[in-house]
Amino acid sequence: MADVIELILADHRRFEDLFRQLRDNSNDRLAVLKDLAELLVAHAEAEEGEIYPALRRFGDVDDHEVEHGAEEHAEGHQALLALMEVGDPEAQEWDEKLEDLVKAINHHLDEEERTILNSAREAVPQQRRDELGDKFVEARAARVSAGCGDISHVRDLVEQTKDRVD
């Protein structure tokens, strides 16, 4: 068992590491982008499917912040798709689209950590956080197995959630 908050925070630090790798021209940036897309989408879908609904049941976790977190996932998916569609890491717009993605995701990570996760740490008992951690890991792994980082799935997500962003 692992605390869902610690698991989410570990993914956040992994995103930051992958962003550093994507900025480094000496890396296989397409392979790193594939890893990022897979983890980012699986993470967001696991949060929205398993974690956010459970956290809404606790009075100290703000429903508005949870809904806002889902909106920011949609914005992140849009930025991810824009970078994936560039295709060539040597293209002029790659770095611009990468920075758009980094900005969107870092904004989300900061807000989620300060609002939702801090509230959950105080409001949700440890045993429940551990149970949610198991569900999070299971849901995230299932999404990865289903190929959630594939560009066609990211396109579908953007289409399904476009009303959240506008």
Rank of each mutant, 00 (worst) to 15 (best):
F136Q: 01
S145F: 15
L9R: 14
L55D: 02
E99D: 08
A54Y: 09
R23K: 15
A79E: 05
E6C: 11
E93S: 06
L40K: 01
N106L: 13
V41D: 07
G76K: 07
E96K: 10
L83N: 01
I5Q: 03
S145Y: 14
S152C: 03
E85Y: 06
L22G: 08
E47D: 05
D28E: 11
E47V: 03
S152T: 00
L117P: 14
A46Y: 12
A44L: 07
E159I: 01
L83W: 04
D62K: 07
R143S: 13
D110C: 00
V144D: 13
K103H: 00
L55P: 07
I105V: 10
A142I: 09
A31P: 14
L157R: 07
I51T: 01
A142C: 13
V4G: 13
A104L: 00
E85A: 06
M1L: 12
H73R: 06
D28K: 14
L40Y: 03
G59Q: 12
L55S: 01
G49Y: 15
R128T: 02
Q160E: 11
S119R: 15
L22I: 04
R23Q: 10
A104S: 01
P89H: 06
E111C: 00
R155G: 10
L109G: 03
I151W: 03
A42T: 04
E38F: 08
A42P: 15
M1T: 13
R14K: 12
E45D: 13
H153F: 15
L117M: 09
D88I: 14
L7W: 10
E65L: 07
L39T: 09
E47M: 06
E75R: 07
E96T: 00
S145Q: 14
A37L: 02
E111R: 01
G149K: 06
E47T: 04
L18I: 01
R13Y: 13
E113I: 10
K162S: 12
D130P: 15
N118F: 08
Y52T: 00
K34P: 04
D28T: 12
D130V: 15
L109I: 04
V61I: 09
D88N: 11
K103G: 00
A82F: 13
P89E: 02
I116N: 05
G87K: 04
L22E: 01
E65T: 02
H153Y: 13
M84E: 08
D156M: 11
G76R: 06
G147E: 01
V86H: 01
G87Y: 03
V32Q: 09
D100M: 08
L40P: 13
